[in-house]
């Protein structure tokens, strides 16, 4: 299946240039692991880095070559094994977790598993919303990035299924309804707390610690 909602060029450039914070890098890499189009975009961004590296004029380097040649036969640690395969979680998330996530139920229709990565102190999390759940309208004090990993939902700004990246900047107010036939698992990276727009939303945030 081909995702319809992608990460922005700005996030791709930050990833390619190596300047993205770890949680953002996790988000971009996870989307790209599910999206061939964004892998191609990323390859182009990395080629820009390669061209810039190639454009540097070479200069002499004293004895560095001799010192490096002397180390060619040093024993090498084996390359790390690929992460275990998972039907829902993409390889970058599995690389971090190493196994099944530890789910914690925060409200009756929502379970959360924290990942060992933070952005401005907010942990990146996996969320599992029960089938038919409604997330009340809210805005954000910063960026919110949500990657759908299984199931799907209908939001004010479109339909989101596996592989789709839902990126909301502080100007966006949205809510969404999870499909009635399946729970929805997502990777969620937030820059700041969310701001509920309704009383129901405030209660939701109070319970979930969002």
């Amino acid at each position: 299946m081909t995702p319809h909602h992608h990460v922005s060029g700005e996030l791709l450039t930050a990833y390619a240039a190596g300047t993205a914070p770890e949680a953002i890098a996790l988000f971009v890499a996870s989307h790209a692991s599910l999206c061939a189009a964004c892998r191609a975009r990323l390859a182009a961004e990395e080629a820009v880095g390669g061209a810039l590296l190639g454009a540097i004029a070479p200069a002499p380097l004293n004895d560095l070559l001799a010192r490096t040649l002397a180390r060619l036969d040093e024993p090498v640690a084996p390359a790390p094994a690929p992460p275990p395969r998972h039907a829902v979680l993409p390889p970058p998330v599995m690389r971090l977790l190493g196994g099944e996530p530890t789910w914690r139920r925060v409200v009756p229709n929502l379970e959360i598993a924290e990942l060992p990565v933070r952005l401005n102190g907010n942990p990146a999390v996996l969320t599992r919303l029960a089938a038919g759940s409604v997330v009340p309208p809210h805005t954000h004090a910063g960026w919110e990035l949500q990657l759908v990993l299984s199931g799907g939902y209908q939001a004010d700004d479109g339909r989101f299924d596996r592989g789709d990246a839902h990126c909301a900047d502080p100007s966006v107010s949205h809510g969404f309804r999870v499909d009635a036939d399946a729970p929805c698992v997502s990777l969620l990276v937030r820059e700041a707390r969310i701001i509920p727009k309704t009383l129901r939303g405030r209660v939701f945030c109070w319970f979930t610690g969002a």
């Binding site: 914070p21 770890e22 971009v28 890499a29 892998r39 970058p92 971090l96």
Partner: peptide, 18 residues
């Protein structure tokens, strides 16, 4: 600085290369 893990793109086994 902020990073502890190096996150790399690894293609999901279910996703073919175009």
């Amino acid at each position: 600085r902020e990073r502890v893990h190096l996150v790399e793109v690894e293609v999901d086994p279910g996703d073919p290369v175009p």
